[in-house]
Simulated scan of single mutants.
Amino acid sequence: MNYKILIIVRHAKSSWEHNVSDVERPLKTRGVRDASLIAKEFKSKNYSIDAVYSSPANRALSTCNIFKDILGWSPDLIENDEELYDFSGEQVINFIKNIDNQLETVVIFGHNHALTSIINLMGDKYIDNLPTSGLVVLKFDIDSWKYAKYGQTELIMFPRDYRP
């Protein structure tokens, strides 16, 4: 049987200090630190990534770029998608169900409450809240993304669990 693996990452902590639109909000220093910490820990898990998709929001793209630099992803792997700039989850679910079936392991960078809802809907472990820079891996026993519905929560990584 084939598997599809979905790696979900919530953007790192953003700064409210700047008078910018929601989509342009940058990361806080702590956000950069936490995203780097999770990316370094995740690197040791040795997942082979086929594609990376990010919300076009600055805070999601910046988080994605931290992971790209630490994990050595090619920029060619990464695409922005408006559907991932979603807070309810409906657009993100639609996005997941339409991922190219040639791709087996995909990373998405996005926002709450969409991501917490999707993890609880599709995974088999309940989480209260996906914190900023939090990462969850869902594994589906399917051969087409359109059947991504009930998977196993294979890995949960929250920054607080890795901070010194």
Rank of each mutant, 00 (worst) to 15 (best):
P75K: 09
V107C: 14
Y147M: 06
K43R: 13
H18M: 00
S21A: 10
L130Q: 01
N101R: 03
T116L: 02
Q91D: 10
M157G: 06
A51Y: 13
E79K: 15
F109G: 03
T63W: 10
N2V: 08
H111E: 03
L61C: 03
A35G: 11
E17I: 12
S36P: 10
L103N: 11
D34C: 07
Y47W: 08
L77K: 15
N101I: 08
I78N: 00
D141E: 15
L121I: 04
E90F: 14
N98F: 03
D161C: 02
A35W: 13
S14P: 14
K139G: 01
L135V: 02
S88C: 03
D86C: 05
K68F: 05
N46K: 15
P164W: 09
Y162A: 00
L77V: 04
I66L: 00
I38Q: 03
I127L: 04
S48G: 01
H111K: 04
K125I: 11
R59C: 05
W73F: 15
A60P: 14
I7T: 09
D141G: 01
V137K: 08
E104Q: 07
R33P: 00
F140V: 08
I127E: 04
D143Q: 12
D22R: 11
K149Y: 12
V136R: 04
M122Y: 14
T105Y: 11
L130T: 09
I78D: 03
Q91R: 15
I5D: 13
S44G: 02
L71R: 07
G110I: 07
N19G: 00
F140A: 06
G151Y: 11
R59N: 02
W16V: 10
